[in-house]
Design a protein around this nucleic acid. Structure first.
Lengths: 235, 235
DNA sequence: ACAAAAGTGTTGATCTTACACCCATGG
DNA sequence: CCATGGGTGTAAGATCAACACTTTTGT
């Protein structure tokens, strides 16, 4: 009945915006196969875990639990080509995680939970998508699927706020859209649109001062998850 | 490293529109667990198969290869709760298939390839979604995810034409939208919208006669896969 | 004063919706 | 003739893109 067994792994596409660029968290593989090459972080599902449990655990191990508060985690797709792993039959479930901008943190992320774990590094996605081949296994495809999902979801969901810190300005939010979509957006129309979308942004009492120009209103995430009307990217 | 192994199955959510209702193809389970109850059709991935291969093969076994021509098949999500199958650890990859209306065929579908296979039957999805609990395993959730995916995709893709026969009228297409969304749509505005959407419909030379009223133009599927502007359902 | 950033007003183009109206067929 | 369904015209409202303009800060 079930003589054909698989190892099941969860691989993470962890995205954030750093220095106005969409970046992904990658690790250097220490063990074969593909030792010494770059790959998406991931690991095998444990006996008592559901898939989302594995994804949550691995994300916490990587970033130190900065996750649940403001971030976002969702299942992407599964990959199981017979020859995708030289060790044998391995099915990998891709998960997409989106974390707030932590540009103040270093490019290298060392796990606080497991100092022996490989060091993770933020890398801009642009070059990785344009010239694939650097990543181990079929991780180029998983990355491409994750980025495309993220780009599509910004259009009709309030997900972009997951890439912002807990309190942010309209310009912070616009910078997320511009980095993920590689476009520029008119700041004035954007501001009107997001502030008038029901449940997207909740104004706080505070203003941001210290920069040049007029101080900006600070917002928190609203309760809405869908965005009506959607934010359309130019094609 | 990989002591924790899974059986991997593909379960199909096969949708079509019959008699103005969205229907799903279900089988009666002949073997334990859940023997005698209703379930989504599915089976285990073979040693040399990728996931899409398994889904394609199972769909062909069920319906007799009427699939590839006009139908649609895409991966949905994976389900792997530790206790979802009493036999042990089984990961199931859900696939969504959408087939043309075959109301002229009987409600029971007997596989031409494998006469021993359980007989499949078309069931309206409405009651199954409103009062879940009838389906085996976690198939209620897989079905709900599949229907929701189909409903969402009609908005911004040309997928609805996959639920129509190779040649169809605008009214056939509108009946698909109305059945999947459980709404009514103004026939006049709908007609203008779909016929003016670039690449959605290609007019043929023929008209449909024989019904009451003015004969309708016959169309084939166009080459476009995305739908601009999208078809919005009322909320 | 000036540059820079935040935010509002306005205008023309496009899209949506509702419905009046005409067209072509079967009975 | 007339009921039925297919299809076009059109006008009111919503939405969008572009940009002039005002507000409020740092230097």
């Amino acid at each position: 009945m079930r003589g054909n067994l698989f190892a099941v792994a969860v691989d993470l596409v962890v995205l954030t915006v750093r220095r106005a660029e969409l970046c992904v968290l990658l690790v250097e593989r220490g063990a074969p196969p593909y030792a010494g090459t770059t790959a998406l972080p991931g690991g095998f599902v444990r006996p008592d875990e559901d898939l989302a449990d594995t994804a949550t655990r691995e994300l916490a191990e990587l970033t130190g639990a900065a996750t649940g508060a403001t971030g976002h985690l969702e299942q992407l797709a599964s990959y199981a080509a017979p020859d995708r792993d030289p060790r044998g039959r391995v099915l990998s479930v891709g998960y997409l995680a989106m974390l707030p901008d932590m540009t103040d943190l270093p490019d290298l992320v060392r796990s606080p939970a497991d100092p022996d774990a490989p060091t993770a590094a933020w890398r801009p996605v642009g070059p990785l998508l344009e010239s694939p081949g650097e990543l181990a296994f079929d991780h180029d495809r998983i990355l491409a699927d994750g980025v495309e999902r993220a780009r599509a979801k910004l259009e009709y969901s309030t997900l972009a706020a997951s890439l912002c810190p807990p309190e942010f300005t309209v310009t912070d939010l616009r910078n997320v859209y511009e980095a993920v979509w590689c476009t520029t957006i008119d700041p004035r129309n954007f501001s009107r649109k997001v502030t008038s979308a029901e449940g997207f942004l909740e104004p706080t009492a505070a203003l941001v001062t210290g920069g040049r120009g007029r101080p900006a209103q600070l917002f928190r995430r609203g309760t809405a998850t869908a965005l009506h009307p959607p934010m359309l990217r130019q094609r």
